[in-house]
Design a protein around this nucleic acid. Sequence first.
DNA 1: TTGACATGTTATCAGTCGATTACTACATTG
DNA 2: CAATGTAGTAATCGACTGATAACATGTCAA
Lengths: 228, 228
Amino acid sequence: MSRVVKKSAESPAATRIPAAERRELILQAATAVFAERGYAGATTDQVARAANISQPYVVRLFGTKETLFVEAMDRALGKLDESFRRVIAAYDAGALADQVALLDPALGSRRQDRLRQLMAVAYADLIEDRGILMMLMQSFVTGHEPVIGPRARDGFLALYRLIRDEAGLDADAARDFLAQGMLMNTLISLRLPEVYDEEPTATELLECTLRTKLPLVLNASRAHRRVG
Amino acid sequence: MSRVVKKSAESPAATRIPAAERRELILQAATAVFAERGYAGATTDQVARAANISQPYVVRLFGTKETLFVEAMDRALGKLDESFRRVIAAYDAGALADQVALLDPALGSRRQDRLRQLMAVAYADLIEDRGILMMLMQSFVTGHEPVIGPRARDGFLALYRLIRDEAGLDADAARDFLAQGMLMNTLISLRLPEVYDEEPTATELLECTLRTKLPLVLNASRAHRRVG
DNA sequence: TTGACATGTTATCAGTCGATTACTACATTG
DNA sequence: CAATGTAGTAATCGACTGATAACATGTCAA
């Protein structure tokens, strides 16, 4: 693949934008690209094209590809952290009475039972921004990289502590919660939604895992295939 | 890294071995290398070194790196499939009475309840061959590759069908079983066992997830660090 | 206006990697 | 002992990629 083709009309040749904003745009592009291809499989040029700027500029704003990956990973972890904290705060403020009324009573009525279900919904909602969860998954399998690995570990453990200490789940419940999340990540990374219609087994597994959130995920998958 | 250094004494310069045997040795090496670094991150030269032969010979025996990865993946999937089938067959033959006696009665006594626990033990046992589960994990996040992706999907779905149809787990139980497996994969890929002593959070999560199999995993981790 | 800084590009390099080619060495068989 | 096939290596190439250098253009205060 050639690197610089200078497509004539695609978007008006990258208008000038403050560096801080440009960084965020690049991080969004990087999240999508790294999520798709992983750290080693993605190139800084692919990120640059997705962000509609030149490859050297990506490198200059972030120093190295490794730094770019780490920042994209931190951003994804931050979004998840923020999402969970928002649910917890809203629940404790009594702002989720309508959502709580819809929860399955068979799954318990203690605070941790409620929060577990509410956070599961919040997690599934994040799939809509398809890159976030796949970016996390790619981070988790890059554990051998000397800089990325330790930070991925720390981020994962911080999420576990959030679930344990802030949401109050006991160890077994926290483990099961994480396990469901990892299964969702795997199904998404495997692109199972893309064969939802053709594979009856995929249909069953997706329905059983995602429940009411399935249409959301299928839509996100279809949207992705249109642009991809 | 230089490619060919011809270390003087390391192992006697690759004695002649029938191609079929050599292929299996390369597949073992490839499993370890791909498990560690992923498809894009691993090089055929790293595999060659691990197998103690030259890089071109790896390529010649498998054609392409992609084929090598696919064969290593199929081998890992096959080991898991074989392991589960052996448990099921042994249970149905009544050969596991002693192991069944040790199971947690609170988790149910139906055939599917028993098999679920026995297969979980078999799964954790596979961690000892550290590469297998990490190889699978790497396969699952390589879903976008046009050749690897579909085969990874098919392999995963075949495992699900095995659990559903052969072991008889209902959809929810099969999902939970897979979820626990994906969590274990994630913990291993993150190298959490390597910080078991330093991170109290890691300690708790590992103990809660791996239970009686934890010593096995910690030993495998330590053994890996000695040779790595 | 001008200079100083910020935003962004083109050109290019040095290293890496999968793959190919051409070769050597050993074994088996007739 | 040829002859033929099998097991394996050294050398090398072309493509790719992260990073650097040099340059261009826009913005804004004094």
